Amino acid sequence: MMNVLKSVSVFVLAGLLEIGGGYLVWQWLKEGKPIWYGVAGAFILAMYGVVATWQTVSFGRAYAAYGGIFILMALIWAWKIDGFKPDRWDVIGALIAVIGACIIIYMPRNR
């Protein structure tokens, strides 16, 4: 159970770094914010790459599963930060993606 909690924590931290870094770059390039937004965003995105390596599974499996977690986190970010209100199809799609991610990363395997 501790491995799952650690893994989920790493996914959440990685998601916050990727979404937050991307958001700052977006603000700089699309919304006319100062260049330091872009610089900070680039640094945060680089930190995302470091944090993602803390997963204990292979690169391919970690990134495939992370995609599902990212979908849910991106919708939550858009809702809480940008005021975007996800509809039921957004929620259903995100839940399907998260279920798929959990199957990819947490189901037992014959080794």
Results as ranks from 00 to 15, higher is better:
residue 11 F to Q: 03
residue 12 V to S: 04
residue 12 V to L: 14
residue 13 L to H: 06
residue 14 A to I: 01
residue 14 A to F: 01
residue 15 G to E: 13
residue 15 G to C: 07
residue 17 L to N: 03
residue 17 L to M: 13
residue 18 E to C: 06
residue 20 G to Q: 04
residue 20 G to I: 04
residue 21 G to H: 09
residue 22 G to I: 07
residue 23 Y to G: 02
residue 23 Y to Q: 07
residue 23 Y to L: 03
residue 23 Y to C: 03
residue 24 L to Q: 05
residue 24 L to W: 13
residue 24 L to D: 09
residue 24 L to P: 02
residue 26 W to H: 15
residue 27 Q to E: 13
residue 29 L to R: 15
residue 29 L to W: 12
residue 29 L to M: 14
residue 30 K to S: 14
residue 30 K to I: 13
residue 30 K to T: 14
residue 32 G to A: 03
residue 32 G to L: 09
residue 32 G to F: 11
residue 33 K to H: 13
residue 35 I to A: 10
residue 35 I to S: 12
residue 35 I to D: 10
residue 36 W to R: 07
residue 37 Y to F: 15
residue 37 Y to H: 15
residue 38 G to V: 15
residue 39 V to Y: 11
residue 40 A to K: 04
residue 40 A to N: 11
residue 41 G to Q: 09
residue 41 G to H: 11
residue 42 A to N: 10
residue 43 F to W: 15
residue 44 I to V: 14
residue 45 L to H: 10
residue 47 M to F: 15
residue 48 Y to K: 09
residue 52 A to I: 15
residue 53 T to A: 09
residue 53 T to P: 03
residue 54 W to L: 12
residue 54 W to V: 01
residue 54 W to M: 11
residue 55 Q to F: 03
residue 55 Q to G: 03
residue 55 Q to P: 04
residue 56 T to Q: 13
residue 56 T to K: 14
residue 58 S to Y: 06
residue 58 S to D: 14
residue 59 F to K: 12
residue 61 R to K: 15
residue 61 R to G: 07
residue 62 A to Y: 08
residue 62 A to G: 02
residue 63 Y to L: 15
residue 64 A to N: 06
residue 64 A to W: 05
residue 65 A to M: 02
residue 67 G to L: 10
residue 67 G to C: 09
residue 68 G to T: 09
residue 69 I to N: 01
residue 70 F to I: 04
residue 70 F to P: 00
residue 70 F to D: 02
residue 71 I to Y: 00
residue 71 I to H: 00
residue 72 L to S: 03
residue 72 L to C: 02
residue 72 L to R: 00
residue 73 M to I: 03
residue 74 A to L: 11
residue 74 A to W: 00
residue 75 L to K: 11
residue 75 L to V: 12
residue 75 L to H: 08
residue 77 W to P: 00
residue 77 W to T: 00
residue 80 K to Q: 01
residue 80 K to D: 00
residue 81 I to N: 00
residue 81 I to L: 04
residue 82 D to E: 11
residue 85 K to V: 01
residue 85 K to A: 01
residue 86 P to M: 13
residue 86 P to V: 09
residue 87 D to G: 09
residue 87 D to A: 09
residue 87 D to C: 05
residue 88 R to H: 14
residue 89 W to D: 02
residue 89 W to T: 05
residue 90 D to R: 06
residue 92 I to R: 07
residue 93 G to V: 01
residue 93 G to M: 01
residue 93 G to A: 05
residue 93 G to F: 00
residue 94 A to T: 06
residue 96 I to Q: 02
residue 97 A to T: 00
residue 97 A to S: 08
residue 98 V to I: 13
residue 99 I to A: 11
residue 99 I to L: 07
residue 100 G to F: 05
residue 101 A to S: 14
residue 102 C to M: 14
residue 102 C to Y: 06
residue 103 I to D: 08
residue 103 I to C: 10
residue 103 I to V: 14
